[in-house]
Amino acid sequence: MGTSGIGSDAGSQSICHALPAGMKLLLTLGIILVAGLIPLEHWPAQGLLLALVFVGLSVAGVTMRYLVRRLALFLPLLLVFGLSVPMARSNDAAWSWTLSLWLRCTVSFMAGLWLVHVLPFRDLLTTLRYWHFPPALIAMLGFMYRYTFILWDELRRLRNARAARDFGGGPWWRVWSINSQVIGLLLLRAMERAERTHRAMLARGWDGSIRFLDGKD
């Protein structure tokens, strides 16, 4: 998993980016739903959908390199998953099921990539707010978003420190033990930070009730 999606607020602007965030979400969901409902017999429709998604990706400015890299991670697993049905019993039904699975999964995945590229995190929060999602959940998501960056940095420092001492490598159980310790340390520090943050929130009058600037609740 790359870190490309989460900080893409300052990314390129295109017609796709200019759409309202809610519409982007619904559009993507719609495409995935349609892709899920098209039966194999209507494969040209599925192909059309794939072409449409591809056009969307290019208009949004997704680079071929990114697309290929993501697909290279995605397709092998899908391939194996799809093949497991005909592997158990090879017949017409199995093979047409597999083909249809490959097609709709690829379309859905690429539609998801489009959304990743055009929906900044903040717009997601605003949309969830607009759709009356529970305020506590939105506040927590915002909190998570903010501290994910900090924990990534901390994680990088911890791993560098470990690598400097252990020269990396070693038998698998050693790597497992070191990695678990890194996660444990991250957890400890983050929990201590959460306590301090809670205190800082109290100092600014936090009483547990969530208030948003856009005045809805």
């Binding site: 506590a136 909190f143 994910t148 924990l151 901390e154 790597v175 991250l186 959460a194 547990g208 969530i210």
Partner: peptide, 26 residues
Amino acid sequence: EDRAVPLTGMMAAIVFAGQMVNFPLF
């Protein structure tokens, strides 16, 4: 109570960051 937002939000960030640590599969 009032610790719900910071603690839960932080735990989500911890799990999210923790998932970046890869464990080799034998």
